[in-house]
Amino acid sequence: MKIGRVEDEELWAAIGEPSRRQLLDVLISLGEATPSAIALELPLTRQAVTKHLAVLDRVGLVDSQRVGREVRYTVRTDRLNEAALAMVRVATQWDKRLLDIKSAAEATHRKRSKKS
């Protein structure tokens, strides 16, 4: 996935994964957060969140700061510009809608299979 003038393949590969887009969205709304706090908002374990954060960190999409025993993360908005943010959200919306279409269609199918 690419957008606008951003030309960094690795950057888009990092965003291309739906869980990481959701994670970014959560982190944007939390502002600053530890992996545990992020995991509370997502159907992911803290370990999975930490792995995704490492990928995002590698391409410079998040910053981390150690505070005592915790590592706190923030989104680097200079890397994720407006257009990219919007596209992240649009893509996340379609992920969600497709999952909802899937559940709705499969439920209808099950219901009709039983009747016949």
Partner: peptide
């Protein structure tokens, strides 16, 4: 290279007619 679109795909365990109905019928939308 600049692209301008988002593409997503999902596999649904239901016949195509039911998926069509889900996507286009106001009651399902």
């Amino acid at each position: 290279m600049v692209t301008n679109s988002i593409e997503k795909e999902i596999r649904i365990e239901a016949p195509i007619e039911i998926v069509w109905e889900t996507v286009t019928d106001p009651d399902h939308i």
